[in-house]
């Protein structure tokens, strides 16, 4: 794949190095001249010095043939415009923008950016998950949050211990899709019996999430 990365700093450097090591073709666009010169000596990528939201520079960077455009600068407006120009002038199929204001995540996607990522939001979510539920981790939404995937650990006081899945009567729209028991992975059936320290991969619709958790882990969950 051909990647164009706009923006300097450590993130751009490590991402570029990672893509190159996986055999991808990388072009970097960097505004700071000294940084551009230094990077061009450090990694095997084409490094251009200039403004990534300048159509002429985008053309020079090979935007016409690239597969993915990543905008990583600390300026949301520059990331948006560069992605939009790459898309509408050069037909670049996938654009990814880092945003600083978490609200811009939704706004950028509304404005046609393929993926917008807010580091602030990711860190906030991680912290909230880790501090709220010790036994529940890896909560991530799928299909714009209409499905939630959770990893749930069964502790000694969990009401579901020693029971089979079919006897638990989980609500409609809740499914135990996998069980991690020590080193083994079990794809469960109705007759699978749950044990202490099992980690369940729970797939639910948000409305049934609370009830499923209560059945598996008890009222405290």
């Amino acid at each position: 794949m051909r990647y164009i990365l706009m923006g300097g700093g450590k993130t751009a450097y490590f991402l570029a190095r990672d893509f190159i090591s996986k055999g991808h073709n990388v072009t970097l666009i960097i505004r700071n001249g000294d940084e551009a010169a230094a990077l061009s000596r450090q990694i095997r990528a084409t490094v251009l010095h200039g403004d990534g939201s300048d159509p002429v520079l985008l053309e020079d960077a090979g935007a016409r043939r690239a597969d993915v455009f990543l905008a990583l600068t600390p300026h949301d407006e520059d990331n948006l415009v560069a992605c939009q120009l790459a898309q509408s002038m050069f037909g670049l199929p996938r654009t990814i923008a880092v945003v600083n204001d978490p609200e811009n995540e939704a706004i950028f996607q509304q404005l046609g950016i393929t993926v917008a990522v807010s580091a602030t939001r990711i860190i906030t979510t991680l912290i909230e998950e880790q501090t709220t539920f010790g036994a529940i981790t890896n909560l991530f939404p799928v299909a714009e949050g209409r499905i939630v995937v959770t990893e749930v650990r069964l502790d000694a006081d969990a009401p579901a211990l020693e029971k089979t899945l079919q006897s638990l009567k989980l609500p409609e729209g809740a499914l135990v899709a996998g069980i991690l028991r020590g080193e083994t992975v079990i794809v469960p059936r109705g007759s699978t019996q749950l044990q202490q320290s099992d980690r369940l991969i729970l797939v639910t619709q948000p409305g049934n999430y609370g009830e499923a958790l209560r059945i598996l882990m008890g009222e405290d969950a």
Binding site: E77, Q110, L111
Partner: peptide, 16 residues
């Protein structure tokens, strides 16, 4: 004074 700021603001004002 910044083109990119103006272009972003215009789209946010219009769409959001």
């Amino acid at each position: 004074n910044y083109d990119n700021v103006n272009l972003m603001l215009a789209q946010v004002a219009k769409t959001v």
